[in-house]
C-alpha cells in the first residue's frame, strides 16, 4: 500500500463528504479562534502591564553620615541580588539637581539650601517588576535592615493594589485559558467522533473486503491532519487580520501611547497550530479505535 493510494482516497473522501469536512474545519477554527483571541489579548495585556511596571522599582536611601568608601560595597551587594536588573547610584548632588528640575518655577524654595543636603541613594530596577510584586516587597524589607540604609521606598500603597489586580488577572487568564482549551479539545473530539460514526457503514464494508487497519485509518488521519492544520491556521489568520485592521486605529490611542501593540509571536502560534493538528490526529485515532476492532 502506498501513500499515493491513501492520499488519493483521502482527497476523494474530502470531495464526497465536503459538507462534513467543512463543518469539522469550521468547528476547529471557531474553537481555536476563541483561544487565540484570548491569548492575543493576554499577550498584549502582559506587554502593557510590563511596560507600565518597568518604572516600578525600589529606592534605597543611605544614611547621610555613611562613609563614602562604603558606598561601592553596597552597590556591589545590590547588583548581585536576585531579581535586580540594574542599580543606579544617585549622589546627593544629582538628587538636588533632579529636585530643582522637578520644582521648575518653584525652585526659589531651595534658596539657601546646600546642594548636598539630600541623602545618597540607589535606584533599583527589578526584572519583570510587575510580575514579582511579592519579590519587591521582600527585597525592600531585607535591604531596609542593612545598617548602611536609612529608608527604603517602593510605592507600597499602589503596589499592594497592583498586586491584588495582577493576582486576579493571572487567575482569570489561567482558568479561562484552561477551560477554553478543554472545551476546544472536547468539541473537536466530539465532531471527529460524529464524522467517524457517520461513516461507520463505509468502515464496515472496507473491513469486509479485506482492508487492513492502516488502510482504513490512513485517509481519516490525512483528513484530520488537514482539518487541524487548516482550522487552526484560519483561526490564527483571522486574529492576524483583526490585528492588522485595528493596529492603525489604535496607533493614535492615548491609552497605548508609547506602547507596542503586537501580534502573537510565532513561538506561540506555531505550536498552537502544531498541537491542534496533533490533537485532531490523536482524536481521530481514539474515535476510530472502537470501529476497528475485528
Amino acid at each position: 500500500m502506498t501513500l499515493n493510494i491513501l492520499f488519493r482516497r483521502a482527497f476523494s473522501d474530502i470531495k464526497q463528504n465536503a459538507g462534513t469536512q467543512t463543518v469539522t474545519t469550521i468547528v476547529v477554527t471557531l474553537s481555536l479562534l476563541i483561544f487565540v483571541f484570548f491569548s492575543f489579548l493576554y499577550f498584549n495585556l502582559e506587554r502593557f502591564v510590563g511596560h507600565f511596571g518597568r518604572e516600578l522599582g525600589i529606592v534605597v536611601y543611605l544614611k547621610k553620615d555613611l562613609a563614602p568608601d562604603r558606598i561601592p560595597a553596597v552597590f556591589a551587594t545590590l547588583q548581585k541580588m536576585e531579581g535586580v536588573k540594574s542599580v543606579t547610584y544617585v549622589s546627593p548632588e544629582e538628587a538636588y539637581y533632579r529636585l530643582e528640575s522637578y520644582l521648575k518655577d518653584e525652585v526659589n524654595i531651595l534658596d539657601g539650601v546646600e546642594p548636598g543636603f539630600l541623602p545618597p541613594s540607589f535606584e533599583l530596577e527589578i526584572d519583570r517588576a510587575l510580575f514579582q510584586l511579592t519579590r519587591i516587597k521582600e527585597l525592600a524589607e531585607k535591604i531596609a535592615r542593612w545598617p548602611e540604609v536609612d529608608k527604603v521606598q517602593y510605592g507600597q500603597e499602589w503596589l499592594h493594589r497592583l498586586e491584588a489586580f495582577s493576582h486576579l488577572t493571572k487567575m482569570v487568564v489561567a482558568a479561562g485559558g484552561v477551560l477554553l482549551l478543554l472545551s476546544a479539545v472536547f468539541v473537536v473530539a466530539s465532531t471527529i467522533k460524529l464524522t467517524v460514526y457517520a461513516r461507520q457503514e463505509e468502515l464496515e464494508i472496507l473491513r469486509l473486503v479485506g482492508a487492513t487497519n492502516s488502510f482504513i485509518q490512513g485517509p481519516f488521519l490525512i483528513e484530520a491532519l488537514l482539518q487541524g492544520l487548516i482550522g487552526s491556521s484560519l483561526a490564527v489568520g483571522i486574529i492576524y487580520a483583526m490585528y492588522t485592521y485595528t493596529k492603525p486605529m489604535l496607533a493614535g490611542s492615548q491609552l497605548l501611547r508609547g506602547l507596542d501593540y503586537q501580534f502573537l509571536p510565532y513561538t506561540f502560534w506555531a505550536p498552537v497550530i502544531g498541537v491542534t493538528t496533533l490533537a485532531c490526529i490523536v482524536g481521530t485515532l481514539f474515535s476510530m479505535r472502537r470501529f476497528l476492532k475485528l
Binding site: I5, I205, L208, G210
Partner: peptide, 20 residues
C-alpha cells in the same frame, strides 16, 4: 451493502484498492 455516496466503479474498486 453498497456505499450510496460512491459510484458503481468506486464501490467495485474498493476490493482492489485494499490490495494496493
Amino acid at each position: 451493502k453498497l456505499l450510496s455516496n460512491k459510484s458503481v466503479f468506486e464501490n467495485v474498486a474498493l476490493s482492489l484498492e485494499v490490495l494496493g
